Amino acid sequence: MNPLDICLEQHRKQAALCFAMDDELGIRHGMSWADFVLLDALDSAGGALPAAELAQELSMPRSRLLLQLMPLEKIGLIVRSVRNDGVRCVSLRPNGRRQVREARETAARICEEVLQ
Rank of each mutant, 00 (worst) to 15 (best):
L49P: 00
L58D: 00
G47N: 07
A48K: 01
L17N: 10
R28N: 14
E53R: 15
L25E: 01
D35S: 14
L49V: 05
A34C: 11
A20Q: 14
G30Q: 03
Q14V: 05
A45V: 07
D22F: 07
A51N: 04
I27T: 14
S44N: 10
V37M: 12
D22K: 04
L38S: 05
D40P: 00
E53S: 14
E24S: 11
D43P: 01
W33M: 10
L58T: 04
R28E: 15
L54V: 01
D35I: 05
D22M: 11
L54M: 07
G46M: 06
E57I: 09
L42F: 10
A45N: 07
D43S: 12
G30D: 03
F19M: 14
P50D: 12
A15I: 09
Q14P: 09
E57G: 08
E57V: 12
D35Y: 06
Q56A: 08
H29K: 04
D35G: 05
A45F: 08
H29S: 02
A55M: 03
D23M: 13
A55N: 02
F36N: 07
D22G: 11
L38K: 01
A16G: 12
A52H: 15
Q56P: 00
V37W: 05
D35H: 11
D22Y: 05
H29R: 05
L25H: 06
R28G: 09
L39V: 03
A52Q: 12
Q56H: 08
L54Y: 00
A20R: 15
V37G: 02
V37P: 00
L54S: 04
A15S: 15
A16I: 03
L38V: 01
L54T: 02
